[in-house]
Each structure stands twice: as C-alpha cells, then as structure tokens.
Amino acid sequence: MQKVPLTLRGAEKLREELTHLKSVLRPRITQAIAEARAHGDLKENAEYHAAREQQSFTEGRIKEIEAKLSNCQIIDVTSLNAHGKVVFGATVDLADADTGDEVTYQIVGEDEADIKAGMISVTSPIARALIGKKEGDLAVVQAPGGTREFDIVAVRYI
C-alpha cells in the first residue's frame, strides 16, 4: 500500500481530533447510552438510538483517523531543502498572468486540502502544474474553465 503524504501540521490536527474523540466524545456517548438505557424500553427510546448512532459514527471516525496516521508519510515542510522548487508542502505565491491577481497556496495531502484556507491537494490540477517549477517560472493550469497561466512569485517552506 502506498504511503499518503501528510504535512506535520496536518498530522498534528488528526492526532488532536483522535485524542478528543477517544478521551472526550467516547466517554460522553457511553454515559448517554447508559442514561438512555436506564429509561427502560429501548425499542421506542429515541435518546438511546441517537446515542448509538453517534457512537457508531465516532468509532468509524476513530478507525479512519488511525488508518490514515498508520499509512501516512509525515513531511516536515520546514526541514525541506528543495532548492527553491515547488514540492509537497511548499507554500507558493502566484500571480495570474492575465489579471495580475495574486494568490497563495500551500500544497498538502488530500485529507488536508481546504481551498478557503489556501491549502490545495497535491493531486489538484493547480498543484500538478506547480510541482517541480521554481520562482520566476510560468505554470500552465488546465482548469475546467480553460487554460490559466500563473507566474510563480515565491516559493517558501513554512
């Protein structure tokens, strides 16, 4: 099975969520199930069924996070020495070649991607067009709306 790349920050966020699920949410759900059981008949007990559904969702999420963490390659972006090239984890400042509008993206793993936060998946068309390029290069992106060109203004490893 291929290792999935994950930034150090992304791995820390997953570990925090896992700790919260195991130490806060799981005990709270167990308590809710116990209280609902104490109310008697479980067939028509909405609180019991809701708590069991939440338990199922939480246990599924715990397994999902554990699987991601066990199958990831954690990359510390700050220790990269990519000689100015755009690589996984790099933060890239771009200028639209047509409009001059500037935008900043960090290239992250699929699980970390959040376009509103400027974090794009390594598998996205923009990231694929940027990987391997350097500051001053032109990146041509095949976007759904047509071809777009970006000047690479700066490449940082933060």
Results as ranks from 00 to 15, higher is better:
I33R: 11
T99N: 10
K85Q: 11
V140F: 08
V153W: 07
H49Y: 12
V141G: 03
L80F: 04
H49F: 13
I62V: 12
S121G: 03
E53N: 15
L94T: 05
I33F: 11
V155I: 10
R148C: 05
I115M: 10
T30E: 15
V103Q: 09
G109K: 01
D151Q: 13
N45F: 08
G132C: 05
I107N: 01
G118I: 05
A11G: 08
H20N: 13
A34I: 10
T58H: 06
D41A: 10
I107A: 01
P144H: 05
K85L: 09
D137A: 12
A117V: 00
T30Y: 11
E35A: 11
L138W: 01
V24S: 12
A127W: 01
G84A: 11
D93V: 08
D96T: 04
L18K: 07
Y48M: 05
K68A: 12
V86K: 03
V108C: 03
I115D: 04
D101C: 09
G60M: 11
T99A: 11
A129M: 09
R61I: 10
P144I: 02
T123Y: 02
C72A: 15
G10D: 00
E44V: 14
G146Q: 03
I33M: 14
L42P: 05
I74W: 02
V24E: 11
Y48Q: 02
A82K: 03
E47C: 09
G84V: 08
H20R: 15
R61F: 08
D76A: 06
Q55C: 04
K134R: 14
A113V: 01
E35M: 14
L21Y: 07
K133P: 04
E102G: 04
H83Q: 14
